[in-house]
Amino acid sequence: MPKRRRGEKKTTYFDYNLLFIIIFLLCFGLVMLYSSSSYTSANKYGDSAHYLKLQARNIAIGLVFMFYFAKKDYHVWRKFGRLAYWGALGFCFVVLAKVPGLTRSSHGQSRWIQVGPIGFQPSELAKIAIIIYLAMLIERIPKQLDKVSSMAKVGIRLVPLVLFVAVNNLSTAIIILGIAVCMLFVASPKYKEFFVVAVLGVLFIFAFINIASYRSDRVEAWKHPETAGDKGYQTMQALYAIGSGKLFGKGLGQSLQKLGNVPEAQNDMIFSIICEELGLFGAVCVILLFVLMLWRMMVIANNAKDLYGALLVTGIMSHIAIQVVLNIAVVTNTIPNTGVILPFISYGGTSLVFLMAEMGLALSVSKGIRLDTIE
C-alpha cells in the first residue's frame, strides 16, 4: 500500500450509520421492554421497572464490550480462533455434563454456567466463537473450498460443538449451523453442494426433534395451537396480540395481552406486543431497521480490506438475519416455537452482551475501509 504523503488527509472510514442503528434499536428495545414487562415486574418483584433496570445494566456492559472490540484491531482475534472454538466447546461440555456447583437450569434445561454472581450461557458464546474460528479457518484455505472434501473437513470440525449445543438448545444449534453454512457459501465457488448440505441439515433437525418428546410436542402445538392446550397457549395469545393491533396499534403502553396473558412477553414474544401496541406499521418499521442494519454490514463486508474481515462481518450478518427471521417466524406461528429472542430488543443478558461484542467486531472491520474504495 502506498505511503500517505505529508499533509494528505487520512481517508479511513467508520460506519456511524451502523452505530446509530444499533443505539436506536437499543433505545427502542428499552421502551418496548418497559412497556411489555411493567405489569409482570410489578406483580412479581414489586417494581415495575425491574426488567428495565436489569436490561439497562446489560446494555452498559454490552457497550463496554462493543467499544472495546471496535477499538481493537480485528486481526488480533485471528490467533484466538482455535482458543475460542475449544473454549466454547469446553463450556458447552460443562453444561451438558451438569457439573455440580458450576451449572444452573433454566426452564427445565441446564443451559447456564454460574460462578458466584457471574453467569452466562455457553451457547451464546458458541455463536461468536464459531464466527471467529471459521473466519480464521476459511481465510487459510480459500482456494481449496472448490473441493467437496475440503468443505467436508471444515464441516466435520463443527460437528462436536453443534451436537453439544443441540442437546439442550436446538434453536441455537440451528443458528450456529446457519452461520457456518452462510460463511462457507460466501467463500466457496461451489453451489450445488450446498443443496446436499441443506438436505443433511433438515435431516439433522428432524432427527433431533424426534429424539426428545418435548420437541415433537412443539411441532404438534405448532400445527394445531388452538387444540394444544397449555402447549399452544403462548402461541395463541401472541396471535391474539398481533391481530388486535391492526394497522396502527392500540398505542404505546396500551397492550392488554401483556397483562399476564402472553408468557415471556419481554423475551421471546416481545414482537407480538410491538404489533399490538404499534400495529402493522410499527412491526414493518422494526423489520426495516434490521434490514438497514444488514445492509450496512453488507457494505462493510463488500469493502473490507481483506478476506478475514469480510468473513467476520458475513458471519455476524448471518447471525442477526437468522435470529430475527426465526423470532418473527415463531411469534407469527410460521414455524414451531424455538425460544429465540429478538436481537437488541428482547430482554437478555448473555445474548445482548455477545451481540454487542459482535457489533464491535463489525465496526472494527469498518475502520479498515478506505473512503475511496467504498462501493
Rank of each mutant, 00 (worst) to 15 (best):
R6W: 10
R6S: 04
L19A: 14
L19Y: 03
I21N: 01
I23R: 01
F24R: 03
L26S: 00
C27H: 07
L30Y: 13
L30K: 03
V31I: 12
M32I: 05
M32S: 07
Y34M: 06
Y34W: 05
Y39I: 06
Y39R: 01
T40S: 06
Y45M: 02
Y45V: 00
A49V: 07
H50M: 11
L63P: 09
V64A: 15
V64P: 07
F65G: 03
A70F: 07
K71N: 15
R78P: 08
K79A: 07
R82C: 08
A84W: 08
A84E: 12
W86P: 06
A88M: 04
F93M: 13
F93K: 02
V94L: 14
L96R: 14
L96M: 15
K98T: 01
G101R: 13
S110I: 05
Q121S: 05
E124Y: 01
A126F: 12
I128H: 02
A129L: 09
I130A: 00
I131D: 00
I131N: 00
Y133C: 02
Y133T: 06
L137P: 00
E139L: 10
Q144I: 03
D146T: 11
K147M: 14
V148F: 14
S149R: 15
G155R: 04
I156F: 08
P160G: 06
L161I: 01
T172V: 12
L177S: 13
V181Y: 00
V181N: 00
F185V: 01
S188V: 00
S188D: 02
P189C: 10
K190H: 03
K192M: 12
F195L: 13
A198F: 08
A198P: 01
L203F: 15
F206W: 15
I209D: 15
S213G: 09
K223S: 04
H224L: 10
A228P: 09
K231M: 09
G243Y: 12
G245C: 01
G245H: 04
K246N: 01
K246T: 00
G249L: 04
G251P: 09
G251S: 09
L252Q: 11
L256W: 13
Q257G: 06
E264M: 14
A265R: 04
D268W: 11
F271H: 02
L278G: 04
G279T: 00
G282L: 02
C285V: 03
L288T: 15
M298T: 14
N303R: 02
A304V: 05
A310D: 04
L311Y: 06
L311G: 05
I316P: 10
S318F: 11
S318W: 05
Q323H: 07
P336Y: 14
P343Y: 06
F354T: 13
M356A: 09
S366K: 03
D372L: 08
T373C: 09
